[in-house]
Amino acid sequence: MNIFRLTADLMHLASIFILLLKIQKTRSCAGISFKSQLLYALVFITRYIDLFFYWVSLYNTLMKIFFIGSSLYIVYLMQVKFRATNDPVLDTFRIEYLLAPCALLALVANYAFTAQEILWAFSVYLEAGAILPQLFMLQRRGEAETITTHYLFALGAYRGLYLLNWIYRYWAEGYVDWIAWIAGLVQTGLYTDFFYIYYTKVLKGQKFELPA
């Protein structure tokens, strides 16, 4: 564990708490893409299936349980409890165009041709693109509630900090993980536009609005 990875994981944790806070406080999931949340649940389930096969640490186990549990809870909130506030009309990204290439890529580019390694690679590829429905929805709405932008910032910063963690681990331990590195780079890259607007508007006290 190093400071970059710990901060990244805490940002990831924070992003989920911000999202839960947004839904509970406003009693609405308006502006949140159900498709992205569904993809995250799939990402966590396919990646953390190793919970049953390997023991890493108490930290690792608790985090995995939290991420699986909270992602399923968010799916429940959006699909059942606050279903009326969910707006599928704006959530139009075609996730099959994401799922199929990720599944194919996982079959071809993995560390071992075993069910667990294929699922792990799939989860890493899928995580890289899972934010696309959300960003697509944001684009269509043209604006976002401030708390939603804090959620997105924390979520994007998490993978960005993992990049620093990987640089550090390569230098300190000779650690190499090409699959996670390339996917993580793509994932962070998708946030570039968002980070720019977040920095120039939200952090200066303005509303998050996209130029018309």
Binding site: R5, D9, H12, R47, D50, Y54, V56, N60, M63, K64, F67, Y111, A112, E117, W120, Y162, N165, D177, W178, I179, A180
Partner: peptide, 10 residues
């Protein structure tokens, strides 16, 4: 060895 049989990151 390329990659790991065991992933310690989240």
């Amino acid at each position: 060895k390329n990659g790991k049989a065991h992933h310690d990151e989240l």
